[in-house]
């Protein structure tokens, strides 16, 4: 599978990561390399194999609907890069 620069650019945008032109160049080549290696998986017949997304055979892990104490606001916001009153602040979201 070939991954071209255009695809890497699109994926980087999906992942919200800005790449320098030189980074894009290098990354595209490295990813090409890695995907080339990963492609060996195509050798295996997997038609009737069920996927494993959870390795443990457990199910129905549930919690009682019992309230727990929330964090004090100041503790919840202690790490906030920008705060206004009791709100987190982000650059204006344009809808």
């Amino acid at each position: 599978m070939a991954i071209d620069k255009q695809t890497v650019k699109y994926i980087a945008h999906l992942a919200r990561i800005e790449l320098e032109p030189s980074e894009l160049e290098k990354l595209s080549l490295q990813l090409q390399d890695i995907l080339g290696f990963i492609d060996k998986l195509k050798k295996i017949e997997v038609k009737d194999i069920s996927p494993t997304s959870h390795i443990l055979a457990i199910s129905n892990v549930l919690r009682e609907d019992k309230p727990k104490e929330s964090l004090p606001i100041d503790k919840a916001m202690e790490n906030a890069p920008q705060r206004q009153g009791n709100f987190f602040v982000v650059p204006k979201v344009i809808e």
């Binding site: 019992k66 309230p67 727990k68 929330s70 964090l71 606001i73 009791n86």
Partner: peptide, 25 residues
């Protein structure tokens, strides 16, 4: 009474960010 994945209260109209915990944050 509590949120889907943590024990924070679902009560409406409380002080902003007062009903949060590491999970829902």
């Amino acid at each position: 009474k509590t949120k889907a994945f943590c024990g924070c209260s679902t009560e409406f109209g409380k002080e902003p960010n007062s009903q949060t915990c590491p999970v829902c944050l």
